[in-house]
Structures are given as structure tokens and as C-alpha cells.
Design a protein around this nucleic acid. Structure first.
Length: 562
RNA sequence: UGGGGCGUCGCCAAGCGGCAAGGCACCAGGUUUUGAUCCUGGCAUUCAGAGGUUCGAAUCCUCUCGCCCCAGCCA
């Protein structure tokens, strides 16, 4: 019965929720209808995730509906692949739009009829000023514009001209349809804005039906009105367009009166959220496609191993306000780790293997393999156990062994020559000797196990320095691991001088081919997340992982307080 | 210097005249067969600045300073 959002947390109502609550309680709107209106000219990114969560979330909280509508008014930049990808991203994030997918292009006939309506009322005219002339006539912020010489054309002439435009009788750029508002307005958007321009393009939805296309301003508010959208939420840069949005609603016989509200878009440091620049990275092959795990696209983050839940939690943590701040990417990473820590089963993987041979193996273990039992999650028994084969030859990470006996126990909690370390979920071992290759590198380490230390503390006097992970050399499997660093090494790659490509991290991706994973992991389904203990969270690659060629992507490392 | 928007801890942010929430980050301890998790504690006498109104101001008024957006036939 209550109009209050069904939020369970104590997050205070944001200004948009306050407006909606008021509209509902005062009976201004019977039901809340919002919309997420992407242009299909690129993939959705983290900034869109915020908008999606906001619009769909508001609809959910207030028992309303949210439409997915493609704002496809510029066929030159749009295509079907983007439409498909966007729908998949929205669904994956966990949202369901009301009814069918909508398109601005569904309403092109109506828009044209409304253009004629404006012409008939003397509120619009066909203008033959060239783009550069048009720019001159528009004036500058502190200087008013001048009326176009075509501003006084008769209704009849305008009617004839717009029909010629529609019929394809003019070249692109030859003329446009403009609203007759005020060339001296202090709001540049009101200086006779363009309603229709000529674009001889095949439209992905309407084919060759049209060669004139409505501008954003002439389309958006009317789309909202047609769909009965009550609260049209967009980002701050559109605030200057609101008077124009309202002008159309007032001057046209639209079926409803939607209202536009603006909030501050998301900015993340070390990240770019510009579709144009993201497209550049793809086109110039700085990354491998829109869903490259380094991309801040929803598809990229998905492939990186971020869960939809984590992304939603992050978006919910963001303020819906009019301030334009830059969120620390650490805040995003917190929610990624929080989710993975709780839900990712633990496993072991050796990224940089060095062999270790247990010399006294036969002395204590009769079979060639001893099955160890390890919990899938240290704090959640419900996740069950897994079996780890312990064999005479194992791999540990090169970085987990040192011959330097002077290393302090506090600084190096790993295996040191002549000392003890715990093999996770298995024995305590002691490093006895190293055998080296001709180049000085370690060929293998000889070690001995301390009996009766599985699940038990070693005898008095034996103090393992720490716990390290391992994989059976004979039973484990080889895997490819892709390590990632942030794509940009600059806090604001998009700000200041230079190109975003100047700030690309040189080695943002490292492919490791000789990694060893515990058996079973190869059979994980693509997109399954794990915590490789002591290393970080990894995900089986959505496209390239298979049991015959396991491929895991680093999602994010563990917090490291070393 | 036209118009629009905004300035509260390193970052995000609540607060709307009654005496500065919360999250991230960071620091210090504790637990731990992951240098993870978890737990405990610390972290703005001050709200861009200056005046003013008031018993009382981050909240009201005035002025000043700073940042963002607008001159696409992009959205």
C-alpha cells in the first residue's frame, strides 16, 4: 500500500525518489514509468550500469515499469549488433523491461505528423542556411544570434519544402527543419533548434523509408509522452535541454506530459566512460573487442568475472545527486571482492611453477597418490569439500621459495632453505636442497614432509613460516592464465591534454601459458569464478575456456597487506 | 565577463535552523592452515571563503572564490 520504496537498507531517499514519492502521494501520476534510452552506437559501460540500475530500480521500488528504448535517430552511427549486445547486457544485469523493446524509430510517422503540426502553427520552418552559416547565425554565449533569412517563410512554402525533404529531393546538408523559438535566448538550445536533418542512410530498423531523421531534442520528450513515461531521468548535461523538452510537450498535442530530471553521471578514476573513445580503443585494436576483460563495458566486466550482483551493489552505493564527482575505482573493487569472497569457491593454481620433490614420500605414503580433503570455502561449510591429490612431485610458485635464510619470518612467510612451511590442506614440509640448471635457475627443490601434520599441528619445535599453495605435478593440469592490470595508468585518462591512448598501461595484459591448476578445474563451466588461494579471483573465460584448454582470467587480486 | 548546474574528511556522501550519519581508502590491534576473510578501535570543534540574521547556522540572507556543462545538421 505504501508508496515508499521497498528498500531494506537505511539508505536515505535520494532527490528523485523524493519527487516520485510526492508525485505518487499527491496523485500526480497513477503509476511510475521510467525508461532506459540508449543509442545503439556502442556497447554499454559502467556509467550506463548506473543509469540502468537507477531507472529499473526506481520502477521496481515503486511498483512501476521501466521500458528499454533505443534512441535510434542517427542511422549513420548505429547498428543491429549494438542493439543485440545492449539487450543482453541489460538482461544479464538482472533487469526485465516492460513489454517489447521500443525504438524511437517506431514513432517516426508520428514525429513527422507533429513536425507538420508545428509548421502549420507557424512554429517551425525549413532553413537553407549551410552548417557553417547556421553556426554563425547562432551567435555566441554572450552575443545573441540573428534570425535566419528563411525564418519568415510561409506555412505553405514550409509544407512544400518539408515534403520535398522527406521525398529525398535535397542533398544531405542542404536544409533542415527548425523550430521557431528565440535566436536571442540565453539558452543556446532555444536558438531555433534543429528538428529534422537529411541523412541518406539505410536505417537498421526502417530501412530506406526515411531520408530525414529527427534530432534528439525533437524525439526524446515525445517518445516519453507516447510511452507514458512519467519520470524521464537523464544526466546533468541535458539540464539545458529541459526548457526545449518542455517546449515541445507544450506545443504539440502529445498524449501525456512527462518530466525530465537530471542526475550526475558516474565518473571513475583510471577509467573512461565515453562510448566514442571506447570505440576508438576497439577500432585501433588497443583491446580485443568491446568485451575485452580490460574494458569498462558491461560485457567486458562480465568477461573479466565481475558478477551482475556486485555491479548492482556498486551502483546502489552511488549517490543519485546533482554533484559531479569522481568515484575511486577502489570503491568498485570493494564490491567485486565482497561478492567474490562470499561466493567464489577456493581452489589452488600455481602461476609460476617450480617443481618440488618430496624425498621421503614413500616412507610415509604407500600409494602414489594420497587424497587430501580441502574445504571449498573456509567460512562456509555448506559449499562442501573437494579432493586434492598429493603426490611425490608437486609444483609451488617460484616466488614462494627462497634460498636466503636471512629473510625475517615476519617479512617472508614462505618456504626458505632448511626451514618449514605448511602446504595448504596438506603436510608441513622442509626444504632440504635445490638442484639448479646450467643457467643458475632452480630445476627442482628437494624437500621432506613432516608426518602426521595433515590437519594437525607439527611437533614442538617445528615452526612453519607460513602456508603456501601447491598443485600435484602428475595429477594437476596445465592452464593458460591471463593477468590484467588497469587499462590506463593515469588517474584521469580522459582529462587534460593528450589522447586517451597516451595513457594506456603498456602491459595491461600478460598471458601465462605454463600454469598448473588442481584437477577438476578444467571442467568448470565458462564464467565460473574461483578464488585461487593467495593469488586472487579468477574466472573461466566466457569464450575460450574448455576442458582441453583451460583459460582463466584474473578478475581481481586479493587485498594485499604485505 | 550570457545561461544552466555544483561546492560537507584523501574519495563518494547523509544532513534542509538545534549542536557533523554511513561507505571506500588509510592507520593501530586481535583471530586465522589464504600476508585473504572476519573482529575491535582510530580517522571533519568543522561544512569553499568573508560578512550578516538568530539564544543557536553546514542548513536562512549578502558578497566573493572555485569546479562542471552549453556555440554538432551527435545523443
Amino acid at each position: 500500500m505504501s508508496n515508499k520504496p521497498a528498500v531494506t537498507d537505511t539508505t536515505p531517499e535520494n532527490f528523485i525518489e523524493a519527487i516520485i514519492s510526492k508525485d505518487l502521494s499527491e496523485g500526480n501520476v497513477p503509476k511510475v514509468i521510467t525508461r532506459f534510452p540508449p543509442e545503439p552506437n556502442g556497447y554499454l559501460h559502467i556509467g550506463h550500469a548506473k543509469a540502468i540500475c537507477l531507472n529499473f530500480g526506481l520502477a521496481e521500488s515503486f511498483n512501476g515499469e521501466c521500458n528499454l528504448r533505443f534512441d535510434d535517430t542517427n542511422p549513420a552511427k548505429e547498428n543491429q549488433d549494438y542493439i543485440d549486445a545492449i539487450q543482453e547486457d541489460v538482461r544479464w544485469l538482472g533487469f526485465t523491461w516492460a513489454g517489447n523493446v521500443r525504438y524511437a524509430s517506431d514513432y517516426f510517422d508520428q514525429f513527422y505528423a507533429w513536425a507538420l503540426h508545428l509548421i502549420n502553427n507557424g512554429d517551425a520552418y525549413v532553413c537553407h542556411l549551410s552548417p557553417s552559416e547556421s553556426s554563425e547565425y547562432r551567435g555566441w554565449a554572450t552575443t545573441p544570434g540573428k534570425d535566419s533569412p528563411y525564418r519568415s517563410r510561409s506555412v505553405a512554402e514550409n509544407l512544400e519544402l518539408i515534403e520535398s525533404m522527406r521525398a529525398g529531393e535535397f542533398d544531405e546538408g542542404a536544409c533542415v527543419l527548425r523550430a521557431k523559438i528565440d535566436m536571442a535566448s540565453s539558452n543556446m538550445n532555444l536558438r531555433d533548434p534543429i528538428l529534422y536533418r537529411i541523412r541518406k542512410e539505410i536505417h537498421h530498423q526502417t530501412g530506406d523509408k526515411w531520408c530525414i531523421y529527427p534530432s534528439y531534442d525533437f524525439a526524446h520528450g515525445q517518445e516519453d509522452a507516447i510511452e507514458g513515461v512519467t519520470h524521464s531521468i537523464c544526466t546533468l548535461e541535458f539540464a539545458d535541454h529541459r526548457p526545449l523538452y518542455n517546449w515541445f510537450i507544450e506545443h504539440l498535442p502529445v498524449p501525456a506530459t512527462p518530466h525530465q530530471y537530471e542526475f550526475g553521471r558516474l565518473h571513475l578514476n583510471y577509467t573512461i566512460t565515453s562510448k566514442r573513445k571506447l570505440k576508438l580503443l576497439v577500432d585501433e585494436e588497443h583491446v580485443v573487442g568491446w568485451d575485452d576483460p580490460r574494458m569498462p563495458t558491461i560485457a567486458g566486466m562480465r568477461r573479466r568475472g565481475y558478477s551482475a550482483k556486485a555491479l548492482r551493489n556498486f551502483c546502489q552505493s552511488l549517490a543519485v545527486a546533482k554533484t559531479d564527482g569522481i568515484v575511486d575505482v577502489a570503491q568498485l573493487e570493494f564490491f567485486i571482492r565482497e561478492d567474490l569472497n562470499e561466493n567464489a569457491p577456493r581452489a589452488m593454481c600455481v602461476l609460476d611453477p617450480v617443481k618440488i620433490v618430496i624425498n621421503n614420500f614413500e616412507q610415509y605414503i604407500s600409494e602414489s597418490v594420497q587424497s587430501m580433503t580441502a574445504a571449498c570455502h573456509p567460512n562456509n561449510a555448506a559449499m562442501g569439500d573437494r579432493t586434492l591429490p598429493f603426490t611425490r612431485e608437486l609444483y609451488i610458485d617460484r616466488a614462494d621459495f627462497s634460498e636466503d635464510t636471512s629473510l625475517s619470518r615476519k617479512k617472508f612467510k614462505r618456504l626458505v632453505m632448511g626451514e618449514y612451511v605448511r602446504l595448504r590442506s596438506a603436510y608441513v614440509i622442509k626444504a632440504e636442497a635445490v638442484t639448479k640448471n646450467s643457467d643458475g635457475s632452480i630445476d627442482f627443490i628437494s624437500a621432506s614432509l613432516v608426518p602426521n601434520t595433515v590437519g594437525d599441528n607439527p611437533p614442538e619445535g617445528i615452526k612453519p613460516r607460513g602456508v603456501i599453495h601447491w598443485v600435484s605435478a602428475s595429477e594437476g593440469e596445465q592452464a593458460e592464465i591471463r593477468l590484467y592490470k588497469r587499462l590506463f595508468d593515469h588517474e584521469s585518462p580522459d582529462g587534460g591534454d593528450g589522447e586517451v591512448t597516451d595513457h594506456l598501461t603498456p602491459d595491461s595484459m600478460t598471458v601465462l601459458n605454463d600454469c598448473w591448476i588442481e584437477p577438476g578445474l578444467a571442467y568448470a563451466s565458462p564464467e565460473t569464478a574461483f578464488q585461487f588461494e593467495r593469488e586472487g579471483y579468477f574466472v573461466a573465460d566466457r569464450w575460450e575456456h574448455s576442458s582441453t584448454r583451460p583459460v582463466f582470467n584474473l578478475t581481481i587480486g586479493l587485498r594485499d597487506s604485505k
